[in-house]
């Protein structure tokens, strides 16, 4: 049984896809792409897919991860292209590796988030950021299924900074760019004019601190109240490099292991090179 790990996105208007919605869409894409899926045993067999740490509904993402189990080996890159074509634009499969290590989910230590606050002056946002960072703890409340919970939103945040608008790339790779730029002009978003863009690194702790909790924290510490809902995007997810404070590629160990396998296999007559029909 081969396991393949995929990185996918939720872009543009499809960021409103809930995790359950995505699961159904993905399993149908697997069928359309005729991927030789391994199925769970039992009365109602399900294709073996493990999802890790899905972004909340309404939040865009460039870095969602999952793992699938196959009954026949496939070339990860060919499989990626096939699945990408099978999913609607916006739900894009952008990276694939064969799993050579265990514990992908455990490697997702932290996320990099970008928050675009339309209608907020950068200076005002900067003051809020400074206040938030200066605080030891920032108590926030969130309504959950079990009632209102109060917890600290500060400790999980390892970085929080204002980025200049031009730094948040406005080219085709812009994660916030709408799916159909011709039809859906993001320039028409309400509150055009002033705009503040925050980037933050949040450690995955329990209870999980989400971008909207940080926004609540900014409101609590500095009365920052964006006039329209923030456009939130997860830019990256992976191991947190404590020294640089950056989030690194969670597929790196698999890639390293794959090249190690290849270099050992290169000297042998029969190489188990991936690349079967995809």
């Amino acid at each position: 049984m081969q396991r393949i790990r995929l990185r996918y996105t939720k872009r543009g208007r499809l960021r409103f896809t809930s995790h359950r919605d995505f699961q159904r869409a993905f399993e149908r894409a697997l069928r359309r792409a005729e991927v030789p899926m391994a199925y769970s045993a039992g009365f109602t067999p399900h294709p073996k897919v493990s999802y890790a740490n899905a972004a909340p509904t309404g939040v865009a993402s460039e870095a969602e991860y999952l793992e699938i189990a196959l009954t026949e080996p496939r070339d990860p890159e060919k499989l990626r292209v096939l699945l990408d074509e099978s999913l609607p634009p916006g739900l894009d499969v952008i990276d694939a590796v064969e799993a050579h290590t265990s514990g992908l989910a455990d490697r997702l230590d932290a996320s990099v988030w970008q928050l675009r606050l339309d209608g907020v002056e950068p200076a005002e946002a900067q003051r809020a950021v400074d206040a938030f960072l200066a605080a030891e703890t920032v108590e926030v409340r969130r309504t959950t299924k079990n009632g209102v919970r109060t917890f600290d939103a500060r400790a999980a945040v390892t970085q929080l900074a204002l980025v200049p608008p031009e730094a948040s790339s406005q080219d085709a790779a812009d994660p916030l760019a709408p799916v159909e730029p011709s039809v859906e002009q993001s320039a028409d978003r309400p509150g055009r004019g002033s705009c503040a863009i925050l980037r933050l690194v949040v450690r995955h702790l329990t209870p999980a601190v989400r971008p909207d909790d940080v926004l609540s924290g900014l409101r609590a510490t500095a009365d920052l109240a964006p006039p329209v809902p923030a456009a939130v995007t997860r830019l990256a997810q992976g191991p947190l490099d404590e020294e640089t404070g950056t989030v690194t590629d969670p597929f790196a160990p698999d890639r390293d292991a794959a090249s190690a396998v290849l270099s050992t296999a290169a000297g042998q007559s029969v190489a188990t090179v991936p690349g079967g029909p995809a």
Binding site: R13, F16, T17, E184
Partner: peptide
């Protein structure tokens, strides 16, 4: 859509309003 988008975070099941079906 740009005007609708700003309303979607405030409603139940926003996915039903965005289209993009296969």
């Amino acid at each position: 859509f740009p005007r609708l988008e700003a309303l979607l975070p405030h409603v139940q099941k926003p996915i039903q309003y965005v289209g993009g079906e296969l």
